[in-house]
């Protein structure tokens, strides 16, 4: 059998790749990987959106609203309340130095409705429902349940993904509104009940300073986050078997971690982009 010629044997081997290639090739491969993934995720999302309108989808969507929305109400309310309380307290101590505690209601309401409400709600849903979406779909992938759907002529994207995307689009704005409301109440508790700011002044400022544009802006953000979070979480689970760094249960665990991290980072990046368009 012919032996490969090696440099150890004193004979010339294949020429080494140029230095620049060695530096840029891994980088280029990574960029290409990201671009490929983004393209695949976009096609995945479009297919999921189109299949939302199937005849048998309404029941599945309602079930998912229960999973993603209703079961997240408590945690969103809790986080909203304490976020509002912290805001009320922090802003009270800042404003009192300038003798402007009267505008506490405006400050709390606007910061929650414009920024904190949509962002923190999205992050809470990611932690509570997004991670479970990834894990559930990932396990279904690894145990061939998705293949089984395919063999039954049930489109796995339509059956598993579309209801989750639709439920996210419905749940995110509603939970954001809930967060806003409870956050403002939390600000009132810490600012007015505990620190003694006048309640009438607090709520007058809330009503007078918040415009419909602020509320709509928050909802637009919630919708954008809904699409981002549901796509990332479902995509990570659906393609968990394509991971090259792990297999089986480990791949589901890593996909879940990636889904949460990517979702949170994407929420913050998208928040900046949407805010820059809205302002």
């Amino acid at each position: 059998m012919a032996q490969p010629i090696t440099q150890e044997q004193g004979l010339p081997g294949p020429p080494p790749p140029p230095v620049l290639s060695r530096i840029f090739e891994p980088f280029g491969q990574r960029v290409m990987g990201i671009v490929n993934n983004l393209g695949a995720a976009m096609i995945f999302l479009l297919k999921a959106l189109v299949l939302i309108f199937g005849r048998k989808q309404p029941v599945a969507i309602i079930q998912q609203i229960n999973m993603i929305g209703v079961k997240t109400v408590n945690i969103v309310a809790l986080v909203g309340f304490f976020t509002g309380m912290v805001m009320g307290l922090q802003l009270y101590y800042t404003l009192v130095q300038y003798g402007s505690v009267g505008v506490l209601g405006s400050a709390v309401a606007l910061s929650i409705i414009r920024e904190l409400g949509p962002v923190l709600t999205a992050i809470m849903i990611t932690a509570r429902a997004g991670s479970s979406m990834t894990a559930e779909i990932g396990i279904q992938r690894n145990s061939e349940q998705i293949d089984a759907l395919y063999t039954m002529r049930i489109d796995p994207v339509g059956y598993l993904i579309s209801p989750k995307v639709a439920a996210s689009i419905i749940s995110f704005p509603i939970l954001t509104a809930l967060f806003d409301l409870i956050g403002i109440l939390g600000g009132w508790v810490s600012g007015c009940v505990i620190m003694g700011v006048n309640s009438g002044s607090y709520f007058y400022r809330v009503v007078s300073s918040v415009t419909l544009e602020d509320v709509n802006g928050g909802f637009i953000k919630a919708l954008v986050f809904a699409v981002i979070v549901s796509t990332i979480c479902c995509y990570q689970g659906y393609f968990t078997h394509m991971r090259t760094d792990s297999y089986g249960a480990r791949s589901v665990s890593l996909s879940t971690t990636s889904a949460v991290v990517l979702s949170c980072v994407s929420i913050l990046i998208a928040d900046y982009i949407v805010t820059s368009f809205l302002l």
Partner: peptide, 16 residues
């Protein structure tokens, strides 16, 4: 594919 049924080796039942 509509003509087929497939019984998987590990069953692939929907566990939930």
């Amino acid at each position: 594919r509509g003509k087929f049924s497939y019984m998987f080796q590990n069953m692939a039942l929907f566990d939930s």
